[in-house]
Structure formats: C-alpha cells, structure tokens
C-alpha cells in the first residue's frame, strides 16, 4: 500500500512536471491563453457596454429597442449556443466579405474568434451593469456638465465614467470572473485554452482525475488572485465616496 502511494505520488509529479514528458508547461500555456481571451473579451465587452449603456440611456427609440433585443437575446440563450452561432456566422461573414472584396478566404485565428465571440456575450451583461451604474450617478452632476457645454465625449471622460465607477466596479468584477470561467466553453469549439489542454493531457495519459483536479486548482488560483486585486480596485474606486447607510 505504501509502495503504491509513493508510486502514485511520483507519477503525479512526473505528469505535472514542466519538462516535455510532463504536461506542466502545456497547462500553463493553456492558462495564459485562457487569461488572454478573458482579458480581450472583457475589454471588448466593456467597449460594447459603454456604447450600449449610452445608447440605451440617451439613444433614439430605434437604437434603444435594438439594444434591448440584443441584451435580452444574449442573456436568454446559452453561451454555448451563442458561441457556436457567432463562431460559424462570424467566420462565414468575414470570408464572404473577403470574397466580395476579391481576397482569398482566410482561416480565422482562434484567439481572435474567441475574443470576438465572448466579447459580444460579455457586452450584453456589461451594458446592463453600466446602465445601472450611470443611473446611480446623481443626475445633477451630468446636468451640470451639460450646462457647462461639455461635448458628450468630454462629459463621458470627465464626469460620467469616473462618477459611475464605484457603482459599476462590483458588477464588472463579477463579469470578469464570469469571463475567466466562460473561456472554458471555447474548449467545445476546440480552442486550446486551459480546459481543452487539460482534456488532451488527460486523454493522452489516462490520468483524468489528476489533470482535471490540477486545472481546477489553476482556475481557482486565478479566481482568488482576481478577487484580491478587484477588491483593491474597488477600494480605490470608492475613495472619497461617503459610505451610504446599508452599504459597506
């Protein structure tokens, strides 16, 4: 029994070793790919979210309704289905556009496709978060900015974004955590991020439990590290904001 245990322990050490027979470096590469996609998707989602929130609050009636349809549909349909739909439709569309313009069809980089697809999904959620945050800003501040004759861009940069930040950070922090976990879904379309790499490693070595457990620990470490950083960012964003009764 003891011999079996030491054998198992050394086996796990070998499997997760950094050098080529072990899979440690491959797993870390997968983790980095996951983080890259998460950062890209979160950033793209934020851009869409700022535009979407502005459109929903200040846009014309048609823009508002279209944005409502966008957020409703994205939040009601499983991410997995959206990823497949957007992945096929997106690559198809780009290639048809290239064909119309007279270029050769290209194979779209998995990283870019992943960021684009998850970014569209994240955009719907951050639209709602940012809309709520802008509404939580005392509206007098925005009116004052308008009264000063600020252009919408300046107003966004100087007043709306900084003032809404403390209200938006908790929701956005949540979205970032969702983004890191949603990258795992790209394994289903075969993109080599952490979960897919883990599956490959597990399939090759038959050590399913070890590898999925190790990947779980990597994801958990990413989440816990993010939580630490995010709580610091939240404290920074809330500096100077009088703490309201009922909120901490």
């Amino acid at each position: 029994m003891d011999a079996l245990l030491t054998l198992a322990a050394s086996g796990i050490g070998d499997l997760l070793a950094f050098d080529p027979p072990g899979w440690g470096s491959r797993l870390l590469t997968g983790l980095i790919a996951s983080v890259e996609i998460a950062v890209g998707a979160f950033g793209l989602g934020l851009l869409i979210g700022v535009g979407g929130a502005y459109g929903k609050l200040y846009g014309g009636p048609v823009a508002r309704d279209l944005l409502e349809v966008y957020t409703t549909v994205v939040r009601a349909v499983p991410e997995l289905v959206l990823i497949l739909l957007l992945y096929f439709a997106g690559t198809d569309l780009v290639n048809r556009l290239l064909a119309v313009l007279g270029y050769q069809a290209v194979d779209i980089n998995g990283l870019i496709a992943g960021i684009g697809v998850l970014g569209v999904v994240q955009g719907a959620y951050s639209t709602e978060v940012l809309r709520g945050a802008i509404l939580a800003v005392p509206q007098g501040q925005i009116e004052a900015a308008r009264a000063y004759g600020m252009s919408p861009g300046t107003m966004l940069r100087r007043i709306t974004l900084p003032a809404m930040l403390p209200f938006a950070i908790p929701g956005l922090a949540n979205l970032w955590l969702i983004a890191t976990k949603d990258t795992a879904l790209l394994a289903v379309v075969g993109f080599d991020e952490l979960t897919q790499t883990t599956r490959t490693a597990a399939g090759a070595t038959k050590a399913y439990f070890t590898f999925f457990f190790a990947a779980g620990i990597l994801y958990l470490a990413l989440t816990l590290a993010s939580t630490l950083v995010l709580s610091r960012i939240e404290r920074w964003a809330r500096r100077g904001v009088p703490s309201l009764a009922g909120s901490t």
Binding site: T195, K206, Y208, G216, L220, L224
Partner: peptide, 21 residues
C-alpha cells in the same frame, strides 16, 4: 468558493471522466 471559482465544464468533466475512471 471552489464551486464559484472553477468553470462548470471542468467540474462536469472532473466528475464524469475523473470519478468515472
């Protein structure tokens, strides 16, 4: 914390492939 900190897909595969094996 553990459940919320790891992707569901990974938990599912850990149970099915890991425990299953």
């Amino acid at each position: 914390t553990v459940i919320r900190g790891t992707p569901l897909l990974l938990q599912l595969w850990l149970l099915y492939y890991g425990l299953g094996s």
